[in-house]
Write a protein that binds this DNA or RNA. Structure first.
Lengths: 199, 199
DNA sequence: GGTTATGTAAACAGATCAGTTTACTTTTTT
DNA sequence: AAAAAAGTAAACTGATCTGTTTACATAACC
């Protein structure tokens, strides 16, 4: 097993452990789960918090492209893809996996305590907002930035409500609202002409 | 200071500490902050987790009536009161106090680990949903249960987005969506008659 | 005034945790 | 095959944490 593969192995196991059991999980659990000694763990990562920061970064780099690919596979049109973003996330909860956003959890846990983890979490959240905005723009909505902000509130609300209630139902509610928002203010160039003031 | 007052004193200090710094704050901090010895703390509460469960219960018993009173003071009509629920919560964030819901945090922290804390958190969340539903019903909306579910997703989404981004802006987004939801499907008896199928 | 409850302060037990170091073994490279 | 790198296992440091106990002080109560 190469150096990169071993580091990846640690990242994979540590990610699952922290995601499932929270950030207060001990490094001993990571060692046991990965099947390595403490010395090796600390050879690859100088500290537990640096490891967590790299986990968030790894989450961002991998999940965003994966999410985009899956959404684009599920639906051909922008509105459908926007809804599909919720569908993909909802599917995890429906499987009985009631985990929130790894980056949001990290941000809340290390807020005002670890700038590196905070920065990685903010980067992940920015990328997620960027992905959401891409699809919002493509819908031809007259105010894509407002729509993006709305979709993000709905997405976060669905995730946290699903997590707390251990039910996927809030996603159906969120998708219902999103569909209403997509149909109520007319898309640009359909009837009303207000391109001039749309950023 | 009477027994009840002393217990209340511990609850007040412990609540602020856990709310500000998370549930992993040590009992030593509570002792120092309240100005009591460890023996006294453990005379009033058999364990830290029982204390936390009582904090959530205390939060429920006090915050819900307080919230109702404040909202009813802020607006005379149901729709205004529904919006005011968001306003009251938003005001805290605008003051620079970026704390989520104490009960939701407790639920996420002790999920599948402490049934007592989980139960107290669920009771709080049920009461909050009940309060939200009261105002939703009074708006005369044709489907108050759906409206309640929608308002809860929006509320949770605004809180967590505000908490993560350290900005009160998500509340404006949430309120905008809520206003749209309140005006789009006609309130019962205004033009459309669909009371028969509204649960 | 004497008894009892209630408090403080501090030591202590027992566990856990992050991180280091030592001694030894395995693998890789040259 | 020799040397160097990378690994394991485990002891250890030093800190932190929940919860208990001991010794002593104070306040209330009869």
């Amino acid at each position: 097993m190469s150096k990169m593969q071993k580091k990846q192995d640690i990242i994979d196991h540590a990610f699952e452990l922290f995601y499932d059991q929270g950030f207060n999980t001990g490094v001993d659990a990571i060692m046991a789960d990965t099947g390595i000694s403490k010395r090796t763990l600390y050879k690859y990562f100088p500290s537990k918090e640096v490891l967590i920061a790299e986990l968030v970064e790894h989450y961002r780099v991998n999940v965003i492209p994966l999410l985009r690919a899956e959404v684009e596979r599920l639906s051909p049109d922008p509105k459908g893809r926007l809804i599909a973003l919720f569908d993909v996330r909802q599917a995890k909860f429906a499987e009985g996996c009631f985990r929130g956003c790894f980056a949001v959890s990290a941000k809340l846990e290390y807020a005002c305590r670890n700038p590196q983890i905070e920065a990685a979490s903010e980067a992940m959240m920015a990328d997620m907002t960027g992905l959401m905005r891409e699809f919002c723009v493509l819908t031809g909505h007259s105010d894509p930035d407002t729509l993006t902000a709305q979709a993000m509130v709905l997405f976060n609300g669905a995730v946290v409500a699903a997590q707390a209630s251990r039910s996927a139902a809030p996603f159906d509610t969120a998708k219902g609202i999103l569909r209403a928002l997509l149909s109520f203010p007319r898309p640009r160039g359909e009837r009303v002409a207000e391109q001039s003031e749309a950023g």
